[in-house]
């Protein structure tokens, strides 16, 4: 079938999502909860695009292409919604995300340089018990990428998100840490985490060493 992306006609297979169609044709949409290895989740509402005739912006990762659809990746409303979402996400974090993280990259793409919201922020809550993998719960944005990587890439089913709203956070096992859960220490969660809420312990140590030496 044929769809229009930013005024350009492209051919796509039935079942293709808007995000896949855009990326497959050299376009770009910022996203937080999307990982091409995982099933679309549609949780973060950052990958919004404009679609002609739709009542509002649509999440491109979970919307399927339809014949003749006209998609805009520069739709102002969509970008404003995405930026607001990122701003809200940032407002809950006690510190700015590391420059290399997907969240920082997306914030930059959407020109979110600060947050206007001054509500509650997460308190520091680290779990450094595992020899390789560290939790920094205060950085968790509940995007579910780690949970899905654990389920869909490895199949260990060790992670889950508990709590509701502001208090929702990732946990291994029954709040027991990686080592006591069914975790097999593959690291797929750390690989996909967009904020370093799950991070390789050694990298955390290196960052601390570097900051300690005044860099």
């Amino acid at each position: 079938m044929q769809v229009m992306i930013d005024g350009k006609a492209v051919e796509v297979e039935p079942g293709t999502t808007l995000l896949e169609a855009i990326q497959g044709n050299g376009g770009h949409v910022a996203s937080l909860c999307y990982d091409e290895r995982l099933d679309p989740f549609g949780a973060c509402r950052v990958c919004m695009v404009g679609v002609e005739g739709a009542p509002g912006p649509l999440p491109s990762c979970t919307t399927l292409c339809r014949e003749g659809m006209e998609i805009s990746t520069s739709d102002e409303t969509a970008l404003r919604v995405a930026a607001a979402v990122v701003e809200l996400v940032l407002s809950e974090l006690p510190e700015a995300p590391g420059e290399h993280t997907a969240l920082a990259v997306v914030a930059k793409q959407l020109n979110v340089t600060r947050t206007r919201w001054t509500g509650a922020v997460h308190e520091k809550d680290e779990d450094l018990r595992h020899p390789y993998l560290a939790f920094r719960h205060e950085l968790c944005i509940s995007c579910g990428r780690c949970v899905r990587a654990c389920d869909e890439v490895q199949g260990a089913f060790a992670l889950t998100v508990t709590g509701r709203g502001f208090y929702s956070n990732v946990t291994a096992g029954v709040d027991s840490g990686f080592a006591e859960s069914s975790c097999v220490s593959c690291g797929a969660c750390a690989d996909t985490c967009p904020t370093d809420a799950i991070v390789e312990l050694r990298l955390l140590e290196l960052a601390i060493e570097q900051n300690g030496s005044g860099e």
Partner: peptide, 11 residues
């Protein structure tokens, strides 16, 4: 491995 590895290769 398609973007995956285990605790031996990675750590």
């Amino acid at each position: 491995n398609k973007g995956h590895t285990c605790l031996k290769g990675r750590f």
